[in-house]
Write a protein that binds this DNA or RNA. Structure first.
Lengths: 203, 203
DNA sequence: CTTGAATTTGCGGGCCCCGCAATATTGCGG
DNA sequence: CCGCAATATTGCGGGGCCCGCAAATTCAAG
């Protein structure tokens, strides 16, 4: 069987396994709650051995959170690609709203439930934010470059990146609890606008 | 021995044990790195059994982070006590700077090292922020009350609380890496001022 | 088909955290 | 001062996580 395909035949399979594990972990955790899911179960669901699970992820929480973090990394990438002349907040708003705009499809019920779970179980929150911190550092670097500040010395890039993270988290949390579903990009824009306006007391 | 003191004789001893455990955990982690500290060691250091450690803290990380979180809770308390008429950002700035103002004493070397460790080891970061999330909810509630918004429905209190958290974290991180030590309250004020001004791009 | 590299797997082991029941301590009323 | 009830501490046992290591399997390339 000379199924000679692209060079990344092996790579692709690894990526598939990773996806399968992450997805299985999320699905099972949604169904039963994180505490009642064993690594054994996740591995079985993905069709690999328990030992293999830990070759891909170093904890259950990391597996569950991986997809969401992947999204956040994409925000950074998008931000890098915005024209340097564009005002900072405009660029950020664009990058964030684009990333979290799932086309026309309303929030997939399964996905929504999953994220809701994440923000509920504090162990997952922690894992999510731990990864988010890494992303924030990237964002800070991009901001530093754009504004001509020094990410290593000035407070500004750090603070701005942290504030953006705060906006994304707040908007997401708000999104999860609005029953008549509001589009996430809209909430994101509101949050970022409020930030840029200095968080004036409402009313 | 009729050493009959205040009613909280028992309580005080528990609190002492808790302090001892948290401090021991922090000290050992600073010396050897978190990975090379066993619960057994911490318990020994504090003069209790290993099992008792877990009666006070449900993980090593929780023990180490406890003191810092205690500080954050105090910010909330202070904020509650500020006069309701005072503008929000003024009240927040006051509460935060007061809490982190260690009088004249320059940053205790030991303490500084400890905090630096925290922000280095990502497991501790995560634990710190997990606890911080609880505090943020409290802060959001206070803000909601002050501004007449609904913490359960409006985005504002959530966002403002998250932004304040971001400011505190950024200022702390900045504080840790400025070699000619700058007073933390000053950095905090800078960060909060920048937030209130809408994070204008510098220069 | 052979071969070398990459992946998966099983095993062993150290450690964490918790429930439970036995013990020890403490404050209180008699 | 004493015994009692409440509270805290301790030891034990056990399930589970995560990792290092080395054997086995898979895969691409010659």
């Amino acid at each position: 069987m000379t199924t000679s395909r692209a060079p990344g035949h092996r790579e692709r399979k690894k990526q598939q396994t990773r996806e399968a594990l992450s997805w299985a972990a999320l699905r099972l955790a949604v169904e039963r709650g994180l505490g009642d899911v064993l690594v054994e179960d996740i591995a079985a669901e993905a069709g690999v051995s328990p030992r293999t699970f830990n070759n891909y992820f170093s904890s259950k929480a990391e597996a569950i959170v991986w997809r969401q973090l992947d999204r956040l990394h994409r925000v950074t990438d998008l931000l890098r690609e915005r024209p340097p002349a564009e005002p900072l907040w405009e660029a950020v708003t664009h990058a964030a709203t684009t990333t979290f705009d799932h086309g026309e499809s309303l929030p997939d019920q399964q996905w929504t439930t999953g994220v809701r779970l994440m923000l509920g179980e504090s162990e997952l929150q922690a894992e999510l934010i731990r990864g988010g911190a890494a992303v924030e550092r990237e964002v800070a670097a991009v901001i530093a470059e754009r504004t001509g500040t020094d990410a290593g010395r000035d407070l500004y890039p750090l603070l701005a990146a942290a504030a953006i993270g705060a906006a994304i988290r707040s908007a997401t949390e708000q999104w999860l609890r609005t029953d008549p579903p509001v589009p996430l990009p809209t909430l994101l824009r509101d949050a970022l606008d409020a930030l840029a306006a200095g968080l004036p007391a409402p009313e």
